[in-house]
Design a protein around this nucleic acid. Structure first.
Lengths: 264, 264
DNA sequence: TAGATTGTTAATCGATTAACAATC
DNA sequence: TAGATTGTTAATCGATTAACAATC
């Protein structure tokens, strides 16, 4: 089942070196509709780096689509964040979309494929726990719709917050989390509580049935094996930025390998 | 100037293979006070990955320090985010701090060294432009003090916002940015405006004298060569998290190379 | 056709991991 | 002393870059 997606291409044959007669003629029907052939949503051989780049391609594609472009080349997409075109093509290949030489990729098709690959084609429901400054901001952030995320519930333990309406959600007491999560079949939770509350809140989320935690605290959470956690840490980015800023004179373009950092 | 920090170690000699008599005796004085010897704050051969890990070591060290620990081993620090001890030792070496076999590293010394290396030993002043949900949250975030950052001014172009006090800062009109930045000798700017305003606001910041932009918009900014930009993109983390969540059954521990992602 | 673009394979590069002598 | 830990060198691994045939 896992290898199914790969079975389209033949097994790699290393030592062979037949150059001339390689282009096996494919039945015409195969060639007519290669565009709709997408890999199933499972078993993706994508690197983490690729996964992180995909959203920015998608964002660019949406802009292009709004501007009425039907096709886009990997070269153009590469321009978004100073990437090499070959990196873009490699990344896009995980979606299963096939481009046209000389023309590029069909914008609409690529958008759909990336969204599908990332799981952004259907909205994932999430709860947010901890309605402080950050929690409040995330609740007010409109952009999550584009990321396939919908925060459907907000929780806190502060009696002064409970019952308040924050960006369209009524803050609920934390002890109602279980019922809410189970009823709504919610698997994702956004953790924005103070550090001291992080672990016990995470425990509570797991008990309630949460399977993925977006962790905005710097706390290393102890979680069962079947729960996924993604840490979001502003300190990382700031460290890189400050470092670059302070050592700006030294370096030319150096190892700006990271897609998030840029000079000029 | 750039190679100065490296000049301590001899140039790598590849083909040579002298194994036995390598340990050149160092004068006693050199060995007495290796602990206070820090590399100058310039020209660091640190990888981006290392740079991103340093803040979490620092955070851990602060906790340990508060608990009264004088020493910590690389093994313990590695526990923070499931790293290998050798990675920690390698990372810490960029600070110039030397540990003691059997004992580990002096907590206070290491804290100071990392802070110094990251430039967090002295507060860096910054302005924030765009007092929307996110900007407001960042203004209210207390933790920046620990990151060596101090947001000293908030700007917006909305007449309804200008003059309001948000978390202790009075929102100023954007056209006063130049004067404020130049007077305060501010080099860092936090960009939290709507996408459509991002580029022109960035231009404005650059004209005002800003040299580093912490970009919270998904817009690829066109900037002069001498301006550093760090993009902060929630979509990246969410893409990784959702992907892990949706393909959770497939994979065991796979390439969880990234320090921010974790299973269990 | 000519030439831009795709997708694939091989080479390069860098970071992680393994191995190990030195240290207290 | 014995053994845990450090710091360094070599090996492994993976991602990026380069090269190139196939395509329209």
């Amino acid at each position: 089942m896992k290898s199914q997606a790969h079975s389209i291409r033949p097994i790699r044959q290393k030592p062979q070196k037949i150059t001339p007669p390689v282009t096996a003629k494919v039945p015409a029907a195969e060639l007519q509709f290669p565009i709709v052939r997408l890999k199933p949503n499972s078993s993706p051989p994508a690197s983490l780096a690729c996964l992180k780049r995909l959203p920015s391609y998608l964002q660019m594609l949406r802009v292009l689509q709004a501007e009425g472009h039907a096709f886009v080349s990997g070269t153009v997409l590469a321009g978004v964040h100073n990437l090499e075109p070959v990196v873009v093509r490699k990344d896009l290949s995980v979606t299963g979309v096939v481009g046209k030489p000389r023309v590029g990729f069909r914008v609409l098709e690529l958008m759909a494929a990336i969204e599908r690959y990332l799981g952004w084609d259907s909205q994932t429901k999430a709860v947010l726990i901890g309605v402080g400054n950050l929690g409040r901001a995330l609740l007010g952030y409109q952009g999550f719709d584009d990321f396939g995320l919908r925060i459907v519930g907000a929780f806190d333990c502060s009696s002064t917050l409970i019952g308040q309406w924050v960006h369209g959600r009524k803050v609920q007491p934390i002890d109602q989390l279980d019922r809410f999560v189970r009823r709504g079949e919610i698997v994702l939770g956004v953790l924005t509580v103070p550090n001291s509350e992080a672990q016990q809140t995470a425990d509570h989320m797991v008990r309630a049935g949460i399977r993925g935690i977006w962790n905005f605290t710097p706390v290393k959470l102890q979680l069962p094996e079947n729960v996924v956690m993604q840490k979001e840490d502003l300190a990382e980015g700031l460290a890189v930025l400050l470092h670059r800023l302070l050592h700006a004179s030294n370096v030319g373009r150096e190892q700006a390998r990271d897609g998030d950092t840029q000079r000029g």
